[in-house]
Design a binder for these strands. Sequence first.
DNA 1: AACCTTGGGACGGCCTCTTGC
DNA 2: CGCAAGAGGCCGTCCCAAGGT
Lengths: 342, 342
Amino acid sequence: MATRPTIADIARELQISKAAVSYALNGQPGVGEQTRQRVLDVARNLGWQPSASARALGGFHTKVIGLALARPAQTVAIESFFIRFLVGVETALAKRDWSLLLRIIGDHPDQEVEVYRKWWGEGRIDGVILVDERHRDPRITAVDELGLPAVLCGGPRRDTTMPCLWTDQAADAETLTDYLAGLGHRRIAHIAGPREFAHERGRQRGMQRAAARHGLDLLSRSAAYDAAAAVQATRSLMADPTTAPTAIVYANDLNAVAGQRELENAGFTVPQDVSVISWDDSPLTEMVATPITALARETEAYGEQAATVLLDRIAGVDRGRVRVTPSDIVIRDSTGPARAAR
Amino acid sequence: MATRPTIADIARELQISKAAVSYALNGQPGVGEQTRQRVLDVARNLGWQPSASARALGGFHTKVIGLALARPAQTVAIESFFIRFLVGVETALAKRDWSLLLRIIGDHPDQEVEVYRKWWGEGRIDGVILVDERHRDPRITAVDELGLPAVLCGGPRRDTTMPCLWTDQAADAETLTDYLAGLGHRRIAHIAGPREFAHERGRQRGMQRAAARHGLDLLSRSAAYDAAAAVQATRSLMADPTTAPTAIVYANDLNAVAGQRELENAGFTVPQDVSVISWDDSPLTEMVATPITALARETEAYGEQAATVLLDRIAGVDRGRVRVTPSDIVIRDSTGPARAAR
DNA sequence: AACCTTGGGACGGCCTCTTGC
DNA sequence: CGCAAGAGGCCGTCCCAAGGT
């Protein structure tokens, strides 16, 4: 193939200056209408495309944003959250013709900052999306100090001014407990994810308050986001019949499916003996023999919103704290009236 | 924050030329050892990082490869293939400090080429990975004509010289039929994915030959990669008891799970009445009540290999046609002796 | 005279400021 | 005032020449 055409080629072909070509190509004033047309025609014929490097070198945006995921590969592969979130992000980016630079790291949040530092230092990206907010999250300060535009999927928090997309975990907890209390459940359990994640803490707090408000007994457990942990937690919860809950809320779809299977293996009937709810919805929850009631978070929309807020921030428009629309509950077969209330 | 330090800053600080700094930083000869050390020290203190744009402008690699996925967002989200493949790709890239530019498009293979054309034209990427090979795949010629380095996950085919990672579908088909024939099955079904995908054609051909070799009756169906299609195909297959197969091979994990559930809902017992196999393994196949026997393709390794072959190709080393290691079968509870043979 | 070290400067592609007709 | 040309900058690389021993 021939070498890439440049504006100099166009200029030579038309016997005009590079400046005129540049103006014409960018819709800037400073060039006559017919010259502009001729430039555009030649550019199209030559198949000219602007060099992203040359543009970036001149201080313009690279039109790329970065996203590094620091979670075990295994988790990333199973949970549909990430890929759905990605799909949403891509949707927003594609609309404005931006691209996504992706990195999947293992379980090393500190490496995540290193990746951002590198990408930003090399001028590869214009901003980043921070997901999986942690309790003490070193990324926030680090990214702030770098001056790297970012949007936080989490918060709100006082130690940063970056825009954030915050989920009202308390409202979601209220939705869940409301529903369960309405079914007559008096003793419920919440198998949360690892407490290092800020959203898990928020959910636990929310569940405690909501349970207290409804006068429910609440059992809390923390477990890793994998099947084995969910099974383990479920087993310990149900071991003593005198303290066993009549409903269990799981942190995500994977845990709920694994937990429900453990319940059924152990001889419990869902939902007659125990109701099961997942805090996260996905095709997985519908695919099991007893489809699982779940909180239907709109993950694609969430990703799309995150990208939009970031793009706005990069453009100089700070949307501040954006509240994510509270989720609705999707009722399926895994929940029903509490045992005692039947 | 201060403006990014450049080699000019380092040069000024040390009262030497930019050239000397550049040589020192890149381990090139042309600069004394002690000067080199001083340069490296100052660079570290200043937190200098090379500008990716400036380097790329000089004709160097951008150290970025592109990947565009053209499948319905829904499919991408559910099937674990993509994300596992991505994890593998990232593993290989991270090792050599390259990055991935990702785009998720809807179901428009033609747009995929447009994205590559754009990325390549703008000088954003050094190569691409082509996945989901189609029967008549316009991308191959297009990418060849662009002169864009690529690796094809599929093939081998005669109309291109790009390196490819080809899966011996016939060998995998043989593994499956071998196993089923050994269990006494004489009448089996293959619910394949859409025939537009080259690998589905390869599998169908492989199944036909292998079945013929074993003297098995083979029923073939094509279905979309979603639960509804799998249910539909399963239903039509089992409608007539006189022609119903004793084993069904599904195109992927999702179809297998949905199909198996349909079988059980319809009153068949798995594996006593019908055996179920998935051509693709994933955590999903283990998670259902009757864990599903599956062909364990090592998707992460596949992705890693794809990235490695591409990186080599970009570096000028063409690995040609690389055969993917044939998959092993993982036997779980969904397969057993054929009914008639019990 | 031959070698090592270093400096000068051009280049890559694009944008934009300044100047000129 | 409208239009166009020229030049300089962004940052790193590397050829070539000049300096020193």
